[in-house]
């Protein structure tokens, strides 16, 4: 009975985080982006500095008509948002917040689970792109696929490096084995992982698959209402997941300068939030990469860097056992 209660509570907590954190990131993006552009951002909804803007957006999306184009493949079209969104919920389940038991569900091969399931999310974009019966959507889907294929490899290699360093592929284990000097040791891997993750999420400056000046909104062009909102939610949930993963893998998760394990959750959240800020910051700062630049960056720059990081990790691991 207590087991069932425990599981239910954990699931509820993860689900609540899944619903709240992406909205927090989205609202932060509204405000940070506005201020970086000398604006104020939303100021009306909710009264205080527009804090309820995304809630209002959600209500608006819920009221909209759910349109399926006449030429579309109906079932695939309707299924795609769920396929895009659910993987992030699953990944959020395994990201540890603190040491020991503070995790939705500890998984032995956590790194592999997280990366594998994140890769599945892209299927949603592909399905949407194909099923929309729209050439822009199809182009967006193609670009999504090309981007995923290019950037999953460096991401995986970077994660493999830190797994080698820790001698385990469990997320809790990796964060537990963290020492402060891992930061300079794994910094290249961290950057590669983070950049590749951004590209996999199609965040600017890697948002070629949804480049509005060329292909409207890529695979999501034909979507309206709640299904469209799901895609957007998937993007922001993706940011949370990516920042959480980077925190746990490369920034030491719950390790902080003071407070011990009791404040672990705080450090994890703080690092995640800082990374989310960086994600927004990068979006505001850099222009979109062209498709060929995008591919080149991955194959000629990130992959060699990740391989070099693996080599470095191996050497250090052998020299300092």
């Amino acid at each position: 009975m207590t087991d069932a209660l425990d599981v239910t509570l954990r699931l509820l907590a993860v689900f609540a985080a899944f619903l709240v954190l992406p909205l927090v990131v989205g609202q932060t993006e509204h405000k940070v982006m506005a201020h970086m552009q000398g604006r104020l951002g939303p100021m009306y909804a909710g009264g205080f500095h527009g804090w309820a803007q995304l809630v209002a957006d959600g209500v608006k999306f819920a009221q909209k008509e759910d349109v399926v184009p006449a030429g579309a493949d109906r079932r695939v079209f309707q299924l795609a948002p769920a396929v895009a969104l659910l993987p992030y919920l699953l990944v959020l389940l395994v990201i540890p917040l603190g040491p020991g038991d503070a995790v939705g569900q500890a998984i032995d091969a956590g790194v592999f689970f997280a990366l594998a399931v994140m890769g599945v999310g892209v299927l949603g974009s592909l399905m949407a792109g194909w099923a929309s019966a729209n050439k822009y959507s199809l182009l967006g889907g193609l670009r999504t696929a090309a981007q995923l294929l290019a950037y999953e490899l460096p991401m995986l290699l970077a994660a493999a490096s830190v797994a080698m360093a820790a001698g385990t592929v469990s997320l809790t284990g990796i964060a537990g084995a963290f020492e402060w000097w891992w930061l300079p040791w794994q910094i290249v891997g961290a950057v590669v992982f983070f950049v590749a993750g951004l590209a996999e999420l199609q965040r600017p400056p890697f948002d070629m698959p949804v480049a509005d000046s060329e292909i409207i909104f890529g695979a999501y062009t034909e979507y309206t209402g709640l299904r469209f909102a799901f895609f957007l939610l998937a993007e922001y949930a993706g940011i949370v997941v990516l920042c959480g993963l980077t925190t746990v893998l490369f920034l030491g998760g719950w390790h902080g300068p003071f407070g011990g394990d009791g404040l672990g959750w705080f450090w994890t959240l703080l690092k995640t939030a800082a990374l989310a800020f960086v994600v927004i910051w990068l979006r505001v700062t850099y222009p979109r990469l062209r498709e060929d630049q995008l591919q080149k960056l991955s194959w000629t720059f990130l992959v060699p860097l990740a391989l070099a990081q693996i080599a470095l990790t191996g050497v250090v691991k052998v020299v300092i056992p």
Binding site: L115, G119, V122, G141, A145, A146, L148, L149, E152
Partner: peptide
Amino acid sequence: GSVVVLLLF
């Protein structure tokens, strides 16, 4: 995550 994506691509 990869082979099917490649296939769809």
